[in-house]
Nucleic acid binder design. Structure first.
Lengths: 162, 162
DNA sequence: GTGGATGCAAAAAGTTTGCAGGCGT
DNA sequence: ACGCCTGCAAACTTTTTGCATCCAC
């Protein structure tokens, strides 16, 4: 099993492109984090990382490399709405999944359900549509936040009912 | 049954705001079209419309009004990805629906399936998540385009196989 | 050595905001 | 008359691009 880096290198060579230190560092950074990061966050991560203090990096290279990584299927771009901007996550070694976004604490929860996928495929196929990918975002309150909300709502309505 | 415009007026008054000609025209424009429009497209529609030739309009007002309309639930913002930018659709008088985006012709197809909604709710609830809304985008080839693709693929492999 | 890659800064694209004047109530 | 609204232009944010230099192969 080749490493992600080796696979990225193979992908680049297939296009007559080169694996540079910057590109390698960007790949490592996005595979090291478990967050859904923006281009800016990725840029800061690499710039501030002590291990890479001797590496010059620029936003332009981050953007250019994210384009290559997305094209090669190494990362996926997500738009989680709510003024979050475009975020990226590494995709190799991760099964497809969807996202729940908590409107209260901002947490992003990944989930996957085979039944859901199956029903989705069926519905879409019924329209003669040939799906190549999809993105489902669910917005609301996560388990912790909704528990907290309920508790707060209960105590408020105890004494202060209008 | 109050008209959408009357409801918008009521919504505005409830916030101590006024219904101006610009705001009314923006509401009408987005309720008249069946496309998923960007702020820029909406601006151009109003600016170029003969009926509103005597009305001054600016992009700033379009953006400001779209914010109000979204807040009041009169329009919904969508991010259909693929460099499409934020698009808006009117939401009153429309049941909730999801979108299929054709990567070949750019067509946007709306669809709705109660089973799909139900499975989605179940899966999400199983995680203790309380959903308030969701957005599902399916990317691929629409019926026409996928038919065309198949035909093209077949004739190509007829004579020009490498 | 050569052509691709990089950083920088300028440019572009999309959206927001400050302000002076205009207008609805 | 008051205070909300508007257009304009400037500011902001995010992403792309031109260019001289640099470096991976």
């Amino acid at each position: 099993m080749k490493s992600f880096l080796e696979r990225f290198e193979a992908f680049l060579h297939g296009k007559g492109l080169r694996l540079t230190n910057q590109r390698a560092e960007i790949l490592r950074a996005i595979y090291r984090t478990h967050r859904h990061v923006t281009a800016e966050q990725l840029y800061e991560m690499i710039r501030d990382d002590a291990r890479t203090k001797d590496l010059r990096i620029s936003r332009a290279t981050v953007y250019r490399t994210l384009g290559l990584l997305a094209e090669g299927g190494f990362v996926e771009a997500l738009d989680l709405g709510r003024d979050q901007g475009v975020r990226y996550e590494h995709s190799l070694g991760h099964e497809h999944h969807d996202h729940m976004v908590c409107n209260d604490c901002g947490k992003i929860i990944e989930f996957h359900d085979p039944d859901l996928e199956r029903v989705q495929d069926e519905v879409v196929a019924r329209h003669g549509f040939v799906a190549s990918s999809h993105q489902l975002n669910v917005y609301g309150s996560c388990a912790q936040c909704s528990r907290r909300e309920r508790k707060k709502g209960a105590s408020e309505s105890d004494g202060a009912e209008a």
